[in-house]
Write a protein that binds this DNA or RNA. Structure first.
Lengths: 224, 224
DNA sequence: CTTTTTTTGCAGTGATCGATACATAAATAA
DNA sequence: TTATTTATGTATCGATCACTGCAAAAAAAG
């Protein structure tokens, strides 16, 4: 049977000559830059430095490799979002951390910017419809996570009882996706942050105690 | 020499058996649903009902056909945006018309929703880098058009003199793009309209006379 | 009619697509 | 050692990619 991936004690056969995790990371970089359909197996094998046979010995298909790359993205570059929403101080602070974190990370830094999940496989050939659906599911799950945090703020009296958290969550999901397109088109982190600052205003309009709302018009930017 | 496309007086040779404009419209529908790379020449010839030879007799390449499809989109389904920004009543009315028009039109109606230009070719193979750049240019031009309308409102004293119209324009461009992703993921027109309503709030915060600002918290929705 | 022009369908171009067959290499197990 | 297991490189597989050569068809021009 399979020896699993025991970290100690060598496996039975010929040792693998490339690192599986590095391969996924390399694949992620390519998929993020060129998309699923724009990245060929030849591109992947060249970048990873491995033959197609060896690659298929580890990943049963391009589709599975892509899915693993998306998982990796969510665990690493995309982890800030879940972390931000765990902010216990307030829903406002959580959303602010979410948007400012996005503004900071999405900005183009050599490689194409924006969120891999927000921008991934928005359209594709009919053969790959399943991939597009799974990406859409991830985006909808992200929106649900935002809504859950807003609902918590509503339960704690931070948000007005009449607040439509579903709409607010959709607005902030859309904001993340808009930030991603702007980043992909070359927006700087400053530009993204200004968008994020503006996007915070509707949430403040839903707060029960909008006492120390910073003035945007005077200072030109929000205090954070 | 070429007889051009004189509407009267038949051309010299064998008459074309398909309509050029219809072909572009069909191509647009396919490109919008499946993307540039996800739509093959075989898909196009099948949908248009024409052989590859005939298609290439009219369009020199898939890339040119795509570009013409994008032009068509901007002239038809996307025309509401330019029209909305021509609203002379106020910048606020113009942006509102822009967002509500988007909410109405982007919603999925049988075919995949969202703006073709907002979602088009956000990533692709290196061979098609030029296409991605041209799409990005169109998005940036849209943002510039929004800024121009906001600047006009600022010049007319509608917006505060300190308003950062560049940031505001980027915010509303991002809003359109976020609406597009939400629509692509299946959001209804009601959901999109609620996002649009929330997105109007930051602009109101920049108005010089925010007198009759409708209250979101009481009524649950904005009066439009 | 013949000539000229343009579009047509058929059949194919070389290249690349994702994915594999096969034999060899390199490790452990017996 | 020999057997077993796993990974490797080479050399593809059939299918599809965007695109074309070629000759017949269908029109106007001479």
């Amino acid at each position: 049977m399979k020896n699993a991936d025991a970290p100690h004690g060598r496996r039975r056969g010929r040792p693998r000559q490339f690192d599986r995790d590095e391969a996924v990371a390399t694949a992620l970089a390519l998929f993020q830059a060129r998309g699923y359909e724009g990245t060929s197996i030849a591109d992947l094998t060249r970048a990873i430095g491995v033959s197609a046979t060896s690659l298929y010995g580890v990943f049963p298909s391009k589709e599975v490799l892509f899915e693993e790359a998306v998982d990796l993205y969510q665990r690493t570059a995309g982890a800030f979002a879940a972390t931000a929403l765990e902010n216990d101080a307030s829903a406002e602070a959580a959303i602010r951390a979410l948007l400012l974190g996005a503004a900071q990370r999405y900005a183009a830094t050599g490689q194409p910017g924006g969120c891999f999940i927000s921008l991934g496989v928005l359209s594709c050939a009919t053969d790959h419809h399943g991939i597009a659906m799974r990406m859409a599911t991830r985006r909808i799950e992200a929106r649900a996570a935002i809504k859950a945090r807003l609902d918590r703020g509503k339960d704690q009296g931070e948000l007005q009882a009449t607040t439509d958290t579903e709409a607010l969550a959709a607005f902030y999901a859309a904001t993340l996706q808009g930030l991603s397109v702007q980043a992909r088109d070359g927006a700087s982190d400053q530009e993204l942050r200004r968008i994020a600052e503006l996007a915070m205003i509707p949430l403040r309009a839903c707060l029960n105690a909008p006492s120390q709302a910073p003035e945007l018009s005077r200072s030109g930017h929000l205090h954070l």
